[in-house]
Simulated scan of single mutants.
Amino acid sequence: MHKGLTGVLAGAAALVAVGLAGEARGEAVTVIGGGMAEACSKAALDGEADLRFEKLCSQALETELLSPRDRAGTYVNRGVMKLRRMSWDTAIADFNQAIRIQPDLGEAYVNRGAAAIGGRRYADSLADLNRGLELGVDEPAKAYYNRALAHEGLDDPKSAYFDYQKAIELSPEWGLPREQLTRFTVTRR
């Protein structure tokens, strides 16, 4: 991951109701340097979803001179807020824009995958989640958790089980994957 003044990546949970056993999780991008883009980043990382914070992100995109990484991160952060409000298509539009600007930003792919899960397009989500994991994200446990949800949506409980396990391995203190595994019964043949 790139670390520096203009784009330290970090994750924040985006609550997305998907109608499965759990909720997809998104990741925000930290933008440093002051101004509205940084305030947008802080709001996304703090779990905000209110429209006033989304407007702050939009203002930053319209008026601030941002590096490509911070501009892409601001699109991701605005998209994460849209995920929290279950606005799948408009969130996907923001993640698409982030990917156009910064194609190596793993969080954009993971979040686009989460939005696809929210829209019950499970097969579509897998390619994005896999790409996000390939590129690297600050909180890969969330990507594995999302991929587990997608596998469950595709009636592939074995793959879902292993991805929940991986999420626990990467983030042992995070309770959601462990809760999901309580629904599984493992039998040996």
Results as ranks from 00 to 15, higher is better:
I92F: 03
V76W: 02
N111Q: 09
E54R: 15
H151N: 13
R100N: 09
E169S: 04
I92M: 10
L61S: 02
D124K: 05
D89Y: 03
L56V: 12
P103N: 07
K82H: 05
A60D: 00
G153P: 03
Q59P: 02
R78P: 02
G11W: 05
N130T: 13
L51N: 14
G73Y: 00
A49E: 09
G118F: 05
L61T: 02
D94R: 00
R131M: 12
L83I: 09
S171F: 04
G7S: 11
L15G: 11
K42A: 13
Q165N: 07
D89W: 06
R69G: 00
E64S: 04
N130A: 15
A123P: 07
D104Y: 01
L5F: 04
C57V: 03
G136C: 10
S87E: 03
D156K: 14
L181D: 09
P177H: 08
E38H: 07
P157S: 06
A114L: 07
K3V: 02
G26K: 00
E179P: 00
Y145T: 12
N146Q: 11
V137W: 00
A28N: 11
D155C: 08
L154N: 11
Q102T: 10
R84G: 12
L129G: 06
A14I: 15
G73Q: 10
F53P: 02
K3M: 10
L66V: 07
R147V: 12
A114H: 04
V29F: 12
Y161H: 11
L20I: 08
A39K: 15
C40L: 03
A21F: 04
M81E: 09
G4R: 10
G132K: 01
N96A: 13
G22D: 14
G7M: 05
L154G: 06
V8D: 11
P157Q: 08
W88H: 08
I101G: 00
R178Q: 15
E27N: 13
E38F: 00
A123S: 15
S58I: 12
Y164A: 02
A91P: 01
R183S: 13
Y164H: 01
A108S: 13
R71M: 12
G175M: 11
E179Y: 09
K3T: 04
P140V: 02
G19D: 12
I117L: 06
L83W: 00
L126H: 01
R147M: 14
H2I: 03
A114Q: 10
Q102V: 08
E152L: 15
P157C: 05
R189Y: 08
A28L: 15
I168V: 13
D46K: 15
A148W: 01
N77M: 11
G34D: 15
R178D: 14
R85G: 03
I99S: 01
V29T: 12
D138Q: 07
N130P: 05
G22N: 07
R25I: 05
N77P: 02
A17F: 04
D89K: 12
D156G: 08
A43T: 07
V16W: 00
I32W: 11
G7I: 01
Y145H: 14
L181I: 03
Q59S: 14
L61H: 05
S159A: 09
A12V: 03
I117V: 13
T63K: 06
